[in-house]
Write a protein that binds this DNA or RNA. Structure first.
Lengths: 338, 338
DNA sequence: CGCGGGTAAGCGAACGTTCGCCCTCACTCA
DNA sequence: TGAGTGAGGGCGAACGTTCGCTTACCCGCG
């Protein structure tokens, strides 16, 4: 109807006016401090609810010099795993009385130019980094060095930032070792994005498991799938064009494993008889692929929660000393590995 | 090292001191207003970057009486579709210079008790509701009535709240009509959660398409799958126990369709020969199920963006008059429907 | 009766901004 | 020469809090 909002927000002064005391006394009552008689306390409380008083956190943080807000910088979290991370983190923040302000950065965006300034303007008490592409952002480490508590879910170039993640090398080891134990000898792997820390760690695990069992590591058996179904499918096709004798594929994510399965179906390889497949992440769909997917369970939700826990801890102790938390992973065997 | 943060934030006064002017003049320069000589302007700007000045949005919103912040209240957005919604919304907000503060509410939580107050304390300029369970929250409509611009992705009981969504009834119609056109006559449907608006609309569409083509609607052919893979699978099993003559299933989400496919596989029904399957949502996996899933494409990302656009529009015009936007959907034919 | 002590409440300042208004020049023009 | 003008800049107030200090008052005690 009208073009202007009618209702002014009710402030502590309004409450004070209605209960006939100074606004400072009202403030005392409303957040517990000071000594106020039972009578006036009741009167003030009554007035507050009558008026529907809602404290203004902006004003409060202005004087308190902290906002009880943490910033979460993420890339596109329609990605299922990232979504789980963030849910875990948000929940933990909420549990400890913090609010989350969130911004996602574009795949090509550097974060340094928009996201970080935006968070600083908001005077967040700390920042949780959940954007893989920040691993390549050289400017980043420089900017946030020693200025604010920061926890990242991914490696940050300069170091000096606390990190929480799962044991990626172990992931590679468990998957590969399992395939070896199943009697597979020519084990290919479809990896994520080259250069990214998860990718390299899981690849290292794959390699270690091979060497550990006396099998040769062969560059020909590694192909990049870029975390996507379609790309993983073509990667698989390329692998089999090169080496028809492959009897197992380890995909660095369940999503890519779906692509692998799809490619195998197309070239008429039966899973697991002709070729076994192992993924990792343990997404909801994993038990329902054809055949059901053996995978490594990665505790995304817990990782997010743990990261937030660490961040809030840094905030409350005022520390910025970096640390590194690694959460365990485990194998879940289903039909795709025989 | 030390338990106390060393760096105070630099304020507009610090900048003023360094450039030898009053802090008000500094403020003028830093946000464009007023008339300041080129010389001092340059001097102030220089001082600002030297000191690394970052404006304090808390203080600014305090005097400006608006925060350029919108609250997003969501349920668990590790749900893929919700994630897309929110990404779309956040991106649009960012594009228009708004920041998003986010809270998710527990499945059982009412939102009225935690989420809304939290947003109000933060003095958000508007709220985007993206939590399906709020459809059942009777208290909700009462609380936010006429107090703040609100846009919801789901129906809110009392009405009076603007809504953005896709055409759910059309979704049901398109899916069912397609199956009829493919010659199917006994078409079952696995629905989401009873009573939820999406569920009922899609069911209504299903029913309308049947009647439109002279086929009878039969309660026996409807089973609840609760949006989950496993539940959808057992729902399918139940359906076929009742009616062995079913030749098509319309699942109200792709996720549930995966469960349907899995159940059909178990009872040795071949898709699409024995039984066709159509889902909806068009998730990334849809082209990679076995067989690839025919589905209705739902523009989640665009819905989120549109909802945010509407919300920001409400905010800037100061209106609270409710409106209702419905985005189109379309059929995508793949192998699962023959 | 005067004094100390405790409790209840008020007061002033500060946090970092924006905004409207006033002052002070120097310059122009009649 | 004196009034008018307009640009450049300062000043005070306000936004809604918290916090430390001070004041007013009531009691009991010596």
């Amino acid at each position: 109807m009208s073009a202007r909002r009618a209702t002014r927000h009710v402030s502590v002064k309004d409450v004070a006016a209605r209960s006939g005391v100074s606004f400072q006394t009202t403030s005392k009552v409303l957040n517990g401090g000071g000594s106020v008689s039972e009578a006036t306390r009741a009167r003030i409380l009554q007035a507050a609810t009558d008026l529907g008083y809602v404290p203004n956190l902006q004003a409060r943080s202005l004087v308190m010099q902290r906002t009880r807000t943490v910033g979460v910088i993420t890339s596109d979290f329609s990605d299922h795993n990232l979504g789980r991370f963030i849910v875990g983190a948000e929940r933990e923040a909420r549990r400890q009385g913090y609010t989350v302000v969130m911004t996602s950065i574009e795949p090509e965006g550097s974060g340094t130019e928009y996201a970080l300034p935006a968070m600083m303007e908001r005077r967040v008490d700390g920042i949780l980094l959940a954007a893989p592409q920040m691993e390549e952002d050289e400017a980043l480490a420089h900017v946030l060095d020693r200025t604010l508590p920061v926890v990242s879910l991914y490696d940050v170039p300069g170091g000096g930032v606390s990190t929480v993640g799962s044991d990626d090398e172990l992931t590679g080891v468990l998957a590969t070792r399992h395939l070896v134990e199943k009697g597979r000898r020519v084990i290919a792997t479809v990896i994520g994005t080259r250069g990214r820390s998860v990718t390299e760690s899981r690849l290292r695990g794959y390699r270690r498991a091979l060497e550990e069992t006396g099998l040769p590591f062969d560059d020909e058996l590694v192909e990049e799938g870029g975390w996507e179904i379609a790309a993983a499918a073509t990667a698989t096709t390329r692998l089999f064009e090169r080496r028809a004798d492959i009897t197992a594929v380890f995909a660095q994510s369940d999503t890519m494993a779906v692509g692998v399965l799809s490619a195998l179906r197309r070239i008429r390889k039966e899973v697991p008889v002709d070729c076994a497949v192992v993924g990792c992440d343990d997404i909801d769909m994993a038990p329902y692929t054809v055949p059901p997917l053996t995978t490594i369970h990665v505790p995304f939700y817990e990782t997010g929660a743990e990261a937030m826990r660490l961040l809030l801890n840094l905030i409350s102790t005022g520390t910025v000393a970096p640390s590194k938390v690694v959460l365990p992973v485990h194998l879940i065997v289903r039909a795709s590995s025989g």
